[in-house]
């Protein structure tokens, strides 16, 4: 608890300064493995391309899905890609959490007088995510143009607000999934599975019905990774209440996942391994 009280006294600028320093170190070390860096970037581009090809093949055979035509679906697709960028860029270290916890190296994060969650996440900045961002923004602009939506300041503000909202949900999902490793040994499966569910975020959540609608909205909130937030941008007047609740729910989910993650850390402290 004491680390928490100390960190609260420090301002945002303190953390921003530290983040910049750690980021530069990380980039420097990445650059020393140039071949790996290039191949990984190619790999990331390939996954995006393959997702796009799947999408094209789907629409070649079926003109619309649940009342969503090609360009609206493309908008949703681009939206989900951009919304998934922050989790890829800033929270990628979650994938290493289980190895660090198992080997005991994680203890080093607990000894610093800064927030453990912040320190752990700041260690890795994944550059590959930027390719995805570019891909997503391109798709989004193309779809926007073809839908023929007006470009107003309000719309742009809504878009940015709801993109941030959507990414909070994805970050929260991955935090929850990663933090399970504090309790379960070899919980890599949970992360892999959650990461695979995100592939369904790019489809309209209106396809679900009954109990599964509730599950995919509130328990595994993939409906909030693209569907509800993008409705608020596409058609602010007709958007359902859930779309407007999304920012608050996003913050709530993120906060809960943070608390869960920190609970794991505290539990780890107790075992003293």
């Amino acid at each position: 608890m004491s680390t928490n009280t100390v960190s609260r006294k420090r301002g945002l600028s303190f953390y921003a300064r530290i983040y910049k320093k750690i980021l530069i170190q990380d980039l420097k070390s990445k650059m020393s493995y140039r071949a790996d860096f290039i191949i990984s970037t190619i790999g990331m581009i390939m996954t995006n391309l393959s997702g796009f090809v799947t999408f094209l093949i789907l629409f070649r055979n079926f003109p619309s899905i649940n009342g969503w035509d090609y360009h609206h679906m493309l908008f949703l697709y681009g939206f989900s890609l951009v919304a998934l960028t922050p989790v890829q860029c800033f929270f990628d270290n979650n994938w290493n959490l289980r190895f660090q916890v198992q080997s005991g190296d994680f203890i080093k994060y607990c000894f610093r007088p800064i927030n453990v969650f912040f320190y752990f996440m700041s260690e890795v900045f994944d550059v590959k995510g930027l390719g995805q961002l570019a891909f997503g923004v391109g798709t989004l602009v193309y779809a926007w143009y073809h839908i023929g939506m007006e470009v107003t300041v309000l719309r742009i503000c809504l878009l940015i607000l709801f993109l941030i909202t959507a990414s909070l949900f994805m970050i929260a999902i991955m935090n929850f999934a990663a933090a399970t490793c504090f309790w379960i040994v070899g919980s890599g499966y949970v992360m892999v599975i959650m990461f695979r569910f995100k592939d369904f975020a790019k489809y309209p959540a209106s396809i679900f019905s009954g109990i599964f609608k509730v599950i995919f909205t509130f328990i595994i909130p993939i409906a909030f990774v693209a569907y509800y937030p993008s409705l608020a941008v596409l058609d602010p007047c007709e958007a359902p209440v859930l779309s407007w609740c999304a920012p608050l729910l996003g913050i709530l989910f993120f906060w809960l996942s943070y608390k869960f993650w920190m609970l794991g850390v505290r539990k780890y402290d107790f075992t003293g391994s």
């Binding site: 191949i39 790999g43 393959s50």
Partner: peptide, 27 residues
């Protein structure tokens, strides 16, 4: 190559797409 993640993701993507695991080859 000393690159595991990159090579592996390239392989996985190609296999999943062209083997019909993400969308049936009939389409």
């Amino acid at each position: 190559t000393e690159s595991t993640w990159g090579i592996n993701i390239v392989k996985e993507t190609i296999v999943l797409l062209l083997s019909g695991a993400s969308i049936p080859l009939a389409f």
